[in-house]
């Protein structure tokens, strides 16, 4: 699973911040929620769960919670608990993957624009402006409706929509770092451009980027859920939290549990990412 890499990379970048994390109760609560879902997602194949796509026709008469189905079943008689846990697996794989790829592209764009300036900067900044002037949901809807809903296309769409924002942050940071002595020193040592960008500049941008990374994880989770709800998420029958809510909303007056449980799962994971981001911001501001 790619999920843990998010926290690992943050930890490797600033060991001191990572070690001070326990002093922020907000961050610890957030981390606890995220770890809870990561553990469940990793353990999904080992847990004694019903298959997420198996239909239990007997349970459809009484879809509420029972001894066989702890959280009840969905409109097609599939076990909700199992679908929520397996659905967490997809969210936790797709969201970090999308954010990491978006970061790779965005950092490259921002480094190039801030380092070379001139026409490179103009071209990258203009392109970013056009993408950023789209209301994000509109961008997602048009893109996914045309390239088709799939995990890969969600990643593509998230990268396209978020890389310009990341590039803008990195560009600003790079511009402010270019006057620093360590950059001048690197020039005097006749280091290559790539070396200056990746070894001197990028690691010094990490402070604001770590917070932004966590916020973006939360935001991308919202996006994935929303796309599922709009019918643009993972194609059925894959368990997908947003898609599960979409399927069940027409029955909300009769069987509210079918839409409530996946909603709560999604909200708790986003809350976890946001609390973690908030705690890290507080810690980094205390420096």
């Amino acid at each position: 699973m790619s999920a843990p890499t998010a926290t690992e990379s943050a930890g490797r970048a600033t060991p001191s911040l990572w070690r001070r994390l326990p002093s922020s109760p907000v961050a610890m609560v957030g981390l606890g929620i995220v770890l809870f879902w990561i553990v469940l997602a990793l353990a999904a194949p080992l847990l004694p769960l019903a298959a997420p796509n198996a239909q239990d026709y007997m349970a459809m008469g009484h879809p509420g919670s029972s001894a066989r189905h702890w959280l009840g079943v969905d409109p097609l008689g599939r076990d909700l608990l199992s679908r929520i846990i397996w659905g967490g697996r997809t969210v936790l794989a797709v969201a970090p993957l999308a954010v990491i790829v978006a970061y790779t592209v965005g950092c490259a764009m921002g480094l190039l624009a801030g380092y070379y300036r001139g026409w490179v900067d103009a071209a990258i900044s203009r392109a970013a402006d056009v993408i950023l002037s789209f209301p994000v949901v509109v961008l997602y809807v048009i893109l996914i409706a045309n390239i088709g809903p799939s995990a890969l296309n969600i990643v593509v769409a998230v990268v396209l929509a978020s890389a310009p924002g990341i590039a803008r942050i990195v560009r600003g940071l790079v511009l402010s770092l270019m006057h620093q002595e360590f950059v001048a020193a690197a020039y005097l040592r006749r280091e290559s451009d790539v070396f200056v960008m990746l070894v001197e500049l990028l690691p010094n941008c990490r402070g604001p980027l770590i917070t932004d990374f966590c916020l973006r994880l939360g935001y991308t989770t919202i996006t994935i859920g929303t796309l599922g709800f709009l019918g643009l998420g993972l194609p059925p029958p894959n368990p997908d939290w947003g898609g599960m809510v979409k399927q069940a909303t027409s029955m909300i007056t009769v069987f509210p549990h079918m839409s409530l449980y996946p909603t709560l799962a999604l909200v708790s994971l986003i809350l976890g990412f946001n609390l973690l981001a908030d705690g890290i911001t507080e810690l980094s501001q205390a420096d």
Binding site: T249, I252, T253, T263, L271, D278
Partner: peptide, 21 residues
């Protein structure tokens, strides 16, 4: 923080569950 963690559709579902259902 809690409010910005609830996507619009999820908030819609929660509000419908409370005020409608």
């Amino acid at each position: 923080i809690v409010m910005t963690s609830i996507p619009e559709f999820a908030l819609g579902v929660l509000l419908v569950a409370i005020f409608v259902v």
